[in-house]
């Protein structure tokens, strides 16, 4: 190992571990191993990454309160540091981490709120594509409609939850105090789209999540509708199709 490599291995280890001693060879003009000075680097790394997570998961942060969120995020940063300097990609493991983080186990809906916020982030940075217009529906030949395959915008994601995740998210995304929400009121599925540059989160009707998921797997319109009906017999194909295209989620229609 080169001297530089050795120095950086020791430095990185001590930056990541709050209890580690200041590495050999680190000095100030007044002393060897200046603990407080070295701590600035440790603090910069943790605080900046916690701030990134706070910006990425603002609703989770609001629900937990600033102090609790920061303490939670600190544990996450310790166990799941970023692999890339492109920090827009950091935090994908946070929802799963919340599933197993004991101090938030009494908030079972929290990981799904985090999933929705992560999906929002992915949508925000997704590749640009122009969606097809609602008028395109009129050009579909009913005889061949069943065999159509949809190409969805890369921003499109579905978040499914046994909790009212869309309501929790939207109530806590506003500047005012959120209204009363009954966490046991039943599940909600959310659709995340980004037709232009603004991310939009929609509450999906019954069967909608199964329908869009099937379309995203390149199933034909006919088999996607079947799958949606199998999940919920009140699934309304016309309404779901209109809603999906109207939301800007579809970028191309192809015949299978």
């Amino acid at each position: 190992m080169s001297r530089l490599s050795e120095t950086q291995t020791g430095f990185a280890h001590a930056v990541r571990n709050a209890d580690a001693a200041v590495p050999e060879g680190v000095v100030s003009h007044l002393r060897d191993k200046p603990r407080k000075r070295f701590g600035i680097y440790r603090n910069n790394v943790y605080v900046s990454l916690i701030n990134v997570l706070e910006g990425r998961f603002p609703v989770v942060a609001r629900l937990l309160g600033e102090e609790f969120f920061k303490a939670t995020a600190r544990v996450f940063v310790e166990h799941h540091p970023p692999a890339s300097p492109v920090l827009m990609r950091y935090g994908g493991a946070f929802p799963e981490f919340l599933e197993t983080f004991e101090p938030v186990s009494d908030l079972p809906w929290l990981p799904d709120v985090a999933r929705l916020e992560w999906a929002w982030n992915l949508a925000y940075h997704a590749a640009d594509r122009d969606p097809i217009s609602p008028e395109a529906l009129a050009t579909i030949d009913p005889a061949s409609a069943d065999s159509l395959v949809f190409e969805l915008h890369s921003a499109v994601q579905v978040v499914r939850s046994p909790y009212p995740v869309v309501t929790i998210w939207s109530e806590n995304s506003k500047d005012r105090e959120p209204g009363q929400i009954d966490a046991g009121a039943g599940g909600e599925d959310g659709l995340i789209v980004r037709p232009g540059i603004a991310v939009d989160v929609r509450h999906l009707p019954p069967g909608g999540a199964a329908f869009i998921t099937a379309l995203s797997e390149r199933k034909t319109l006919g088999s996607a509708a079947e799958r949606a009906l199998a999940e919920d017999e009140s699934f309304d194909l016309q309404a779901n199709l209109g809603g999906l295209i109207g939301s800007g989620a579809v970028v191309a229609l192809e015949t299978a």
């Binding site: 080169s2 001297r3 950086q8 430095f11």
Partner: peptide, 25 residues
């Protein structure tokens, strides 16, 4: 500065020792 080590991105601009070895790198 350096900020990546062993597959981990340390989100800060960390200092380097000033010597010929570092300079060459």
């Amino acid at each position: 500065a350096w900020s990546t080590h062993d597959g981990v991105y340390l989100n800060d601009l960390l200092p380097v020792p000033y010597n010929a070895e570092t300079q060459a790198r």
